[in-house]
Computed example of a mutant assay.
Amino acid sequence: MSKEKESVLAGFKAFLMRGNVIDLAVAVVIGAAFTNVVNSLVKGIINPVVGAFGTQDLDQYSSCLQAPCTMKGGEVVKGIPIMWGTVLSAVLTFLITAAVVYFLMVLPMSKYLARRATQQAAKEEVQEVMDVSELEVLKEIRDALIAQRVPGQAAAPGQNPQSHP
């Protein structure tokens, strides 16, 4: 194989091994399964509720652009029907899907991430305070050791006691 083909294959392998590709594939599969749940919800619950005010099948709601609209066996024989019930059903499906995704996935995840960021900030603040206090304790220990080495002469902090005669 040529070097160009090897680099293309290596690049493709690196692309496939990134975590984002796997996450995206899982999201697509779950999204496809979730679509069936939402469609069942719309057909099984929403359409009958709407049907209490009219027909149970939203696809039956239509208007005629050019009267009279006559149907024969599901096909339009005369006129131009506007199938606004189908659009209404699709809009309801979209809104339900968006609401479920937001309330069951996005909102809990954003709350979790905010809580995690708060905990991380608190942890960093505590670590910063500990670093400062550890530094102060180490300076005190250093000064005490310096004072013990040179009796009667305490070196100023940061001075090397050996540099004094």
Rank of each mutant, 00 (worst) to 15 (best):
S2N: 10
K3Y: 08
K3M: 10
E6I: 15
S7L: 15
L9T: 05
A10C: 09
A10V: 07
A10L: 14
A10S: 15
F12Y: 11
F15W: 14
M17V: 07
R18K: 12
G19W: 09
N20T: 14
L24G: 04
A25P: 00
V26S: 01
A27L: 12
A27N: 05
I30E: 06
G31S: 08
A32K: 12
A33S: 12
F34L: 08
T35F: 15
T35L: 14
V38C: 04
S40I: 09
L41Q: 02
V42Y: 00
K43Y: 03
G44E: 01
G44H: 05
P48K: 11
V50S: 02
G51F: 11
A52F: 13
T55F: 08
Q56R: 10
D59R: 15
Y61H: 05
S63C: 02
C64D: 06
L65K: 10
P68N: 07
C69D: 09
C69P: 09
T70N: 13
G73E: 13
E75W: 00
E75A: 14
G79L: 08
I80T: 12
M83V: 11
W84G: 07
T86E: 10
T86F: 09
T86K: 15
V87W: 04
A90C: 03
A90T: 07
V91S: 02
L92P: 01
T93G: 15
L95N: 06
L95A: 10
I96L: 15
A98Q: 13
M105N: 09
M105V: 15
M105S: 13
V106S: 11
L107K: 14
P108W: 02
K111N: 12
A114L: 11
R116Q: 07
T118V: 09
T118H: 06
T118F: 03
T118I: 06
Q120Y: 01
Q120W: 05
A121L: 01
E124P: 03
E124R: 02
V126A: 04
V126Y: 02
Q127A: 13
E128T: 00
M130C: 01
M130P: 04
M130V: 06
D131H: 00
V132S: 03
S133K: 02
S133F: 01
E134M: 05
L135V: 00
E136P: 00
L138E: 12
L138W: 06
K139S: 10
R142A: 14
D143F: 06
A144R: 12
L145T: 01
L145H: 07
I146F: 00
A147V: 00
Q148C: 07
Q148S: 11
Q148A: 15
V150M: 09
P151T: 08
G152Q: 07
G152A: 10
G152C: 11
G152Y: 06
Q153V: 15
Q153A: 15
A155R: 03
A156L: 11
P157E: 08
P161S: 03
P161W: 02
S163R: 01
